[in-house]
């Protein structure tokens, strides 16, 4: 199968972590379904132009987490029940938050400012400016 994974050389995460995150995301959004065969280590290493050891390491880690199952001589499959994995969801969210925080810090913005900006961006468009004046209260509640 062809899996559209993206490895960003400018991304500060180690490459094997990027591979893990990409597969996790593929499972989460349903692009990879339980029971589906993953690309072989050789195929994926070639596609990503990375050391096969790195892909192997990522697969081992995912196997340990239970997100994939590696069967000797057959390859690695997406584990049954992997999609419903709440931990996987939490991890993706956590990683996304970390990345947003890093970007914010780079521009000298505080976590509070970032949270406020996300709320504002996600809120349905409104002509009333009033809701932008009470972010402190909702921060405290969360």
């Amino acid at each position: 199968m062809k899996l559209a994974l993206r490895i960003d050389p400018a991304d500060p995460r180690p490459i094997y972590v990027q591979v893990i995150d990409e597969i996790r995301r593929g499972v989460l959004r349903g692009a990879l379904r339980p029971g589906e065969l993953l690309p072989s280590v050789r195929e994926l290493a070639r596609q990503l132009r990375v050391n096969p050891n790195t892909v192997q390491q990522a697969y081992r880690e995912l196997d340990r987490e239970g997100l994939i199952e590696t069967r000797r001589g057959m390859g690695s499959f997406v584990a049954h029940g992997a999609a419903a994995d709440r931990d996987a969801r939490e991890r993706v969210l956590g990683e996304l938050a970390q990345r947003a925080l890093r970007e914010a810090a780079r521009s000298g913005l505080s976590p509070d400012e970032l949270v406020r900006a996300i709320r504002k961006a996600a809120a349905p468009p409104s002509d009333e400016p009033s809701h932008t004046t009470r972010p402190e209260a909702s921060d405290a509640a969360s």
């Binding site: 050389p9 490459i15 280590v41 050789r42 290493a45 070639r46 132009r49 990375v50 050391n51 096969p52």
Partner: peptide
């Protein structure tokens, strides 16, 4: 691509000298 394919089939020890480290970042341990 070829190097990744090669190493997946025929594991080897590699010593690579380069002036462009970025190029082999995905390979070097």
């Amino acid at each position: 691509e070829l190097l990744a394919d090669h190493l997946a089939q025929f594991p080897a020890t590699v010593l690579a000298s380069t002036h462009i480290p970025r190029e082999l970042e995905g390979f070097a341990d």
